[in-house]
Amino acid sequence: MPLRIHAFTMSDLASVSRAVDGAKPTRPVTFWSLATQRFLRHRLAVSGLLVMLVIAGIAAAAIWLAPHSPTAIDPVAFQAAPSATHPLGTDSVGRDVLSRLIFAARVSITVGVLAVAMYVVIGTAVGATAGYYGGKMDLVLSRIMDVMLSFPPLIIILFAVSVFGRPSIWNVILVLGLLGWPALARLVRGQFLALRDLEYVLAARANGSSDARIVLRHMLPNALAPVLVAATFGMANAILVEAALSFLGLGVQPPTPSWGNMLTDAQSLTVLERMPWLWVPPGFMILISVLSINFLGDGLRDALDPSLRL
């Protein structure tokens, strides 16, 4: 199914990007326009972007798109199979699965994107600093990462619950961001350790380039690969973990739907075997959004890295 979607959009988009290509030469060639060009040529990346935009559109227009209220209970249809009234069936308390799926896009996409953005920024900054400067700086920052990595995350989450009081979606983002950055920081640090003695970095340093310029212009683009992977996986993870967090009293509370908490309905073999409408739709939505983000990431990296040719 996901493959078919891509095949479809791919052929569709080829003409679009060709048209854009044709328009290009009239403008002066800069790094960014080159990057944009390269990105647009990456069909999967463009389809990924489009899918994400469509999902975002669905999330924004949920009120008009959903056939039912996402919390309304159908008193005669609990765990009912798809029908005319409920195109994707109903969940364990008789709510319309399609409507919940549509509304859930809001929470899941917001959490997925923002939480990951947060820990990518923190993790990259800390990891880059530690790896670039090394020595004392590395020691201190690494120990901070160690401390963060030493606690069972669940304890930190429960602690956060007590600190935050009222649950909200922003708390989830904050907690996921706080829990996620140390691992990413270690990855980036490893990359930077390997990069900082490369010829071009040494040359830039000899030129008297500022540290910030060396890191941002020369090293970061070359350290981006693992960051992008961590980000795409982090997103899938954030969408699923969000459900676990609302379970613990953090984040969106029922009856607000999210793809993650919709999947918590799938806790039995009977559901797995006989009630696919309870787990296929949210699972599928998570899959295609993560895939889209992944391709988007691939495209971005290719576009920003001049050494790679498509």
């Binding site: 919390t71 209970i73 308390v93 429960l158 613990l248 009293g249 509370q253 009856p255």
Partner: peptide
Amino acid sequence: RERTGDIIRENLVAVGIKVEIQKSDFPT
């Protein structure tokens, strides 16, 4: 019981009581 919570909220909202659910682990 968790599902009951969702139903109760919906029922109370139906008679005009505003309800916010707050889930937590059992010790909390």
